[in-house]
């Protein structure tokens, strides 16, 4: 497909064109298409979904899609899974939970492999959000890798960040301890049918008390994503957070963060690719590592302290 044809198909809202455009962005060829469409972005509501593996992020995503569809809104979903550092292959399995939406034309689901990116997102996630936004989706849900503590990127990219935790799990307690608290706009205690759900709520509350909050204080919602319980409340909490952002003007700050995130990804991507090429010729004889780094940086053509 030529780039012109792609753009034409995209303008005609053909799903295949959106799918292909995201692939372009993933392979470092997104420049033309994203630039051409960027003026059409800025309308979508972006929701980030993070939390340890297995808490029910994908299941929550599916329930939120159901809710949004019930309100007549179209939804784009981006699910990020890790790539193998060795083979670079990946198993992308979040879709399983979203199967009920596969044939709904107003829902578009894209799985992305992290391809070595840290921070729980893929390098091109921001581009994918822009493309889905331009395509016209009302709501965009972004599910992160959900491993460990490097989940800060999602808070930059999304307007509202949900942090999902589950009762009776060591991982969830680790997350509380690890200072992920600050990125949450809404805490979701999923699997609320579990006997230890109340204890987790207490732990979240007491962890929150350790911090000083100004402006928005994170809400706490209990859900049972599988059965759909608590999704109304979760949706309402998201709406309140959005209203807060809009009323206080903080939405501009969030948009700026997302923009900066995207710029950083693009710039870093280019630097890294160049760096990879330069380092390929490097060997351990001759220079000491500092001198070698100086040389590489000067070849990059940038001035760094």
């Amino acid at each position: 497909m030529t780039d012109d044809a792609l753009l034409r198909d995209f303008e005609m809202r053909k799903p295949r064109a959106l799918a292909r455009a995201i692939s372009y962005a993933e392979s470092g060829r997104g420049r033309d298409i994203v630039r051409a469409l960027y003026s059409q972005t800025g309308r979508a509501l972006t929701i980030g979904l993070t939390g340890p593996p297995g808490v029910g992020k994908s299941t929550l995503a599916s329930a939120l899609v159901r809710k949004a569809r019930g309100l007549g809104k179209s939804v784009g979903v981006i699910s990020v899974d890790p790539s193998s550092p060795f083979s670079h292959g990946a198993l992308l399995g979040d879709r399983i939970r979203l199967a009920e939406h596969f044939t709904d034309e107003a829902v578009f689901i894209r799985s992305m492999a992290s391809r070595g990116h840290l921070g729980g997102l893929a390098g091109a996630t921001a581009d994918a959000v822009s493309l889905m936004d331009a395509f016209g989706f009302d709501v965009i849900l972004i599910e992160t890798v959900g491993v460990g503590q490097s989940e800060i990127a999602i808070a930059e990219l999304a307007q509202t960040t949900l942090v999902a935790l589950q009762p009776g799990s060591g991982d969830s307690i680790q997350v509380l301890k690890a200072g992920i608290m600050e990125i949450a706009d809404v805490f979701v205690v999923n699997k609320a049918d579990h006997p230890m759900a109340n204890q987790l709520r207490r732990e979240i509350r007491s962890a929150m008390e350790m911090l000083e909050w100004k402006g928005w204080i994170p809400e706490l919602v209990a859900t049972q994503a599988l059965a759909g319980d608590g999704i109304e409340e979760l949706w309402a909490a998201i709406q309140r957070h959005m209203a807060y952002l809009n009323e206080t003007g903080e939405i501009e700050g969030r948009r700026r963060n997302a923009f900066v995130h995207q710029v950083r990804q693009l710039a870093m991507g280019r630097i890294e690719r160049r760096l990879d090429v330069l380092l390929e010729g490097e060997n351990s004889t001759g220079l000491d590592p500092y001198a070698a780094a100086d040389r590489v940086i000067s070849t990059l053509g940038v001035q760094l302290p």
């Binding site: 292959g89 990946a90 198993l91 992308l92 399995g93 879709r95 399983i96 492999a113």
Partner: peptide, 10 residues
């Protein structure tokens, strides 16, 4: 996957 592909499992 081990051969380096991205596999989407439905």
């Amino acid at each position: 996957r081990d051969a380096g592909m991205e596999v989407i499992y439905t």
